[in-house]
């Protein structure tokens, strides 16, 4: 089937099998390999993208269900080569080691802070608890998100 949607502000048209999930469509169909696929059944959160303003797991959504949607992937969060304030905070706090979980952490935190720039530490921990990280022990990730809140309050 041919589907059309918008990714990171650009209209795209792509041919997919109905069984293709959105993560595979983004990675294989559109070359946007920033979105990572960890478990492919909804438990790790690495594949999180933002669909019509809401964070979703792209391995749990069929690409054909994205027809007409506006999608933001991790590639769409920074302009050119510059890091976004959230990304810069991740770097400052050593909130990534291998980086496999990072795109999912960043997109999830971006969706959260866009909606709730005043989220407290409890809320941030609760939201990020759905994303697995095997390296950092989570504490630096939470610290980075806490610091990035300031940039979303403006």
């Amino acid at each position: 089937m041919t589907i059309q949607f918008e990714v990171n502000g650009k209209a795209v048209k792509v041919e997919v099998e109905p069984r293709t999930h959105l993560a595979d469509c983004l990675r294989h169909g559109l070359g946007l390999t920033g979105t990572h696929v960890g478990c492919e059944h909804g438990v790790c959160g690495a594949c999180t993208v933002i669909v019509n303003g809401e964070a979703v797991r792209s391995c749990l959504m069929l690409a054909v269900q994205a027809e007409g949607a506006k999608i933001i992937t991790v590639e769409g969060l920074s302009r050119d080569e510059a890091l976004s304030p959230l990304q810069a905070a991740f770097r400052k706090h050593h909130a990534l080691q291998c980086g496999f979980c990072t795109p999912g952490m960043i997109t999830t935190a971006h969706a959260l802070l866009t909606d709730e720039p005043d989220a407290d530490i409890k809320r941030i921990r609760e939201v990020l608890s759905g994303n697995l990280c095997r390296c950092t022990g989570y504490i630096p990730i939470v610290e980075a998100v806490m610091e990035a809140r300031a940039a979303y309050r403006k």
Partner: peptide, 9 residues
């Protein structure tokens, strides 16, 4: 029920 992203769908 479930985690943040799952709750959106």
């Amino acid at each position: 029920v479930a985690h943040y992203q799952i709750r959106n769908r």
